[in-house]
Simulated assay, not measured.
Amino acid sequence: MFNNNQESTAPVAAGETYEVTIQDIAKEGDGIARIEGFVIFVPQTEVGETVNIKITKVLRKFAFAEKEE
């Protein structure tokens, strides 16, 4: 059965911090990291960079984060 409430299946939550490695660059130029396969867009990053991020917004299929200084 398909579960409409996908929010609870995201392995990340807004406000949490993680160390990630940027794996790809999105069309818009944001870095793409993955946690348990879940896509996280991180602006101002480059492929291969390992950064600490803070999740700012979690959607059904992906999340947004900002790089922590």
Rank of each mutant, 00 (worst) to 15 (best):
E68Q: 15
V42M: 04
V51N: 10
E19W: 04
E7Y: 10
Q23K: 14
I22G: 05
V39G: 09
Q23I: 09
A65P: 07
K27E: 12
A26F: 03
K27P: 05
E68P: 02
E19D: 15
E7P: 13
V42N: 04
Q6S: 11
T50F: 02
I55Y: 02
T45N: 10
I40G: 06
F38M: 07
F64R: 02
K67V: 12
K27Q: 12
E49R: 01
I32S: 08
G15Q: 10
T45V: 03
N4K: 15
R60Q: 12
K54P: 08
E69Q: 14
I55L: 01
Q44W: 15
I22R: 02
Q6A: 12
Q44F: 15
F62E: 10
F38R: 04
I55K: 08
F62A: 07
E68C: 13
I32M: 04
I53L: 00
D30F: 15
A14M: 01
I32V: 15
V39Q: 00
D24W: 13
V20G: 06
I25E: 08
V20N: 06
A33N: 09
K61Y: 14
E28Y: 13
E66C: 00
F64D: 05
M1E: 11
I53W: 08
I35W: 01
G29F: 06
A10K: 05
T17D: 07
Q23C: 09
D24P: 04
E7N: 12
L59R: 08
V20H: 03
K54N: 11
K67N: 10
A13E: 14
E46A: 15
G48W: 11
K67P: 05
N4H: 08
T21A: 14
G37C: 07
V42E: 02
A13C: 12
M1Q: 13
T50A: 06
V58I: 11
K67Y: 01
N3I: 13
I35L: 03
A13H: 01
A65C: 03
A13Q: 12
A14E: 03
Q6I: 06
K57W: 08
T56D: 05
L59H: 13
G48C: 09
R34M: 03
K57Y: 07
R60P: 06
A33S: 11
N52G: 11
A63I: 01
G37K: 01
E28Q: 14
A14Q: 05
A14K: 01
K61E: 09
